[in-house]
Design a protein around this nucleic acid. Structure first.
Lengths: 231, 231
DNA sequence: CTCATAAATGAGGGTAATCTCAATTTCCCA
DNA sequence: TGGGAAATTGAGATTACCCTCATTTATGAG
């Protein structure tokens, strides 16, 4: 029998956290990640998960704080202990999603130096994972035009690869905010088209092919790269 | 002295309509057009103008019926005599805007048969006039992703010219809903970029150039056509 | 196990929006 | 010009949301 009080307490806490997670309608990824942290961090994570769920379906304006806390299984007033208002939570949610997706993409693209390949794979991976975790996809889409910070975040990543391509002599464009935003919005539009059913799983390749053409890559090369198997 | 009662009555009505218009904060174009119609049509037009003003600044969700009627100088309850709800009014507003812009574009493009030229001029004109009447621009942008009918309307026009280009052998793409939606969303994004200050009056030409590249036009030709003076 | 602290609760006050309808005003024909 | 029809008015009933705070519950170090 364990008598070390510290261990006992830790064990009780862990069990409570586990029960919390099991009691969720569908335990989101952020709650799982926070399950070993303190209570405050855990309810914060549950709020983020619930917000992701609600924002994905309703968008920012239509979502109410009441509904998010209900979805999280948390009292209404608790919300204000963690976030100032809906907008603050929205920003956190949006950045969490982008951070998750970017992490996955960077892992998949490590060691690839060809800009044409990077743009193609980046776009394809992005659309694939955003569509795969559909709440990520819808939340990203819904926030893309309402959160300037989100567009800037995306632009930052895209710009590096586009500038790389110009240096490598494969892209024939002048790189500025406008260009980067057009390329970024094309990714967003293609993601929407797939979520909407306008296009199937080929969305990523089709978007990548159009992007490469737009950047000045020869259409034959663009086609070849964009549709090549991703290993 | 005019004694014909019909004429006298008409004159009084016309004067009332004129006073209505002058009393508006800024008499919108739809109210002006309806000034010779019956009273019902006139207040309906005032509602559309006011909605255009409010939607452009607040978007669909944030706008309230109260604010629209206040802006129109009309009692709250009158709204429901003309529209079922905010969404119905929004659809009417969106289609009115598109109809106006399309009318202007078609006038400017009559007699042009080259698909490359048509796509270029259509995009440039669209962005130019939408930005010129800034409420049209913002309202179009705000509704683009929320009203599927609006995207379909735009797609319909674009598709004709894209298919024309394929027939003429100048575009090397497969034309389907996905492609048309990507081209359309690029116009919308470029319009936003200009309204947002990311880019100046060259937005139309830059968007057109990217579009033509994307459709398979040789980059040199794309540049030449997209930046040529519009007469 | 005890207890001070941290966290969560949820009822309730305040605000704002939607929609209705009986009363009023305007319109326009005879 | 009189008067019935058409249109408008705006107060109020209803609903939904935001946010606060006094109270309750959970936590974990000693």
């Amino acid at each position: 029998m364990i008598t070390n009080s510290g261990l006992v307490v830790l064990s009780v806490t862990a069990k409570r956290a586990a029960v919390e997670i099991l009691s969720l309608p569908q335990s989101g990824s952020f709650a799982v990640k926070a399950s070993h942290l303190g209570k405050s961090a855990r309810t914060r994570a549950r709020l983020i998960d619930a917000a992701l769920f609600v924002f994905a379906r309703q968008g920012l304006d239509a979502a109410s704080i009441n509904e998010i806390t209900r979805e999280a299984g948390i009292a209404n007033g608790t919300f204000y202990l963690h976030f100032k208002d809906k907008e603050e939570l929205a920003a956190v949610v949006a950045f969490s999603v982008v951070a998750e997706i970017v992490t996955e993409i960077e892992a998949a693209m490590a060691g690839i130096d060809d800009a044409v390949e990077r743009i193609s794979r980046g776009t394809r991976h992005f659309i694939h994972t955003a569509f795969g975790r559909i709440d990520w996809g819808w939340t990203f889409f819904r926030f893309f035009w309402t959160l300037p910070q989100l567009r800037r975040e995306v632009a930052q990543y895209l710009r590096q690869d586009i500038e790389l391509g110009v240096v490598q002599g494969v892209f024939t464009v002048t790189v500025d905010d406008f260009l980067v935003e057009m390329v970024g919005s094309l990714v967003n539009s293609a993601l929407f088209a797939q979520m909407n059913g306008t296009v199937g799983s080929e969305a990523g390749s089709r978007a990548a092919e159009l992007q490469l053409r737009l950047l000045g890559v020869d259409p034959d090369r663009a086609r070849e790269v964009a549709w090549r198997s991703l290993d």
